[in-house]
């Protein structure tokens, strides 16, 4: 049994379903990436896993426990953390306060975790007294990831973390994400930059119209000529 298993998820926002029997799983300490064309339901699948979308069918298991009925807040307490694609920081608060808010539910001393975040993203230490809204796009993403890490999650979920940042910053962010995974945190992420993302992925899911089209290791997907032709532009 995988660390996270979302099985046969079906559901949507209104009457029409967006997800049609989508299944995902993430192993402990591994990186799973969801790619696919626009409108494939990638972000929706993410929200479904995090409980921000009511499922009509299927279930979500974390460490073998069924969490399908839990609220997002309850899932945070279970060790899941989510970084939305946009508006993922508190803009008028300083970087340090953003991190503190990430650890809002924790009653123990958070200084050590904050040190780890600063070690992972050294630039944030320099900017810790600055308002998050004043930072550059890439730095803001680092704050967002840092905020999510403050809960000491077992599973980190990232919705297009590299949207709108330059290629150099993107590589940098991917390096950091690999580092996070090495500490034993499982990662589930949605990415537009499919090729680069599959490069670092242990497991890849190609979603089309709300259901799995291809599921394999990142390496295998990159090698698959069908996937290359249809989704990676040759």
């Amino acid at each position: 049994m995988s660390f996270l298993e979302a099985h046969n998820m079906t559901g949507g926002y209104g009457a029409a379903d967006i997800l049609h029997g989508c299944s995902l799983s993430v192993e402990k300490g591994q990186i799973a990436v969801i790619v696919g064309p626009n409108g494939a339901g990638k972000s929706t699948a993410m929200k479904a896993v995090f409980g921000m979308l009511k499922l009509r069918g299927g279930h979500v298991m974390l460490e073998g426990e069924d969490i399908t009925q839990l609220s997002p807040q309850a899932r945070v307490a279970k060790g899941m953390a989510f970084v939305p694609q946009t508006s993922n920081v508190f803009p008028s608060m300083t970087v340090e306060e953003n991190l503190e808010m990430g650890a809002f539910l924790r009653r123990d001393n958070v200084a050590a975790t904050m040190e780890q975040v600063y070690a992972l993203f050294p630039i944030l230490r320099d900017k810790r007294r600055q308002a998050a809204g004043e930072l550059s796009g890439g730095q803001r993403q680092q704050v967002a990831v840092g905020r999510a890490l403050m809960t000491v999650p077992k599973l980190l979920m990232l919705d297009e973390p590299t949207a709108g940042v330059s290629p150099i910053v993107m590589d940098e962010l991917f390096d950091r994400i690999i580092e996070v995974a090495r500490t034993g945190i499982s990662i589930l992420m949605v990415e537009q930059n499919a090729r680069q993302a599959l490069n670092i992925a242990d497991m890849g899911y190609v979603l089309v119209q709300g259901s799995n089209r291809y599921t394999d290791t990142g390496e295998a997907l990159l090698a698959d000529p069908d996937v290359r032709r249809t989704f990676l532009g040759g």
Partner: peptide
């Protein structure tokens, strides 16, 4: 601080458990 966070970004505040 949680009040300021809530005022800044309500959804993220909820995700943070506020």
């Amino acid at each position: 601080k949680s009040m300021r966070a809530f005022s800044d970004n309500e959804d993220l505040a909820l995700l943070s458990g506020i």
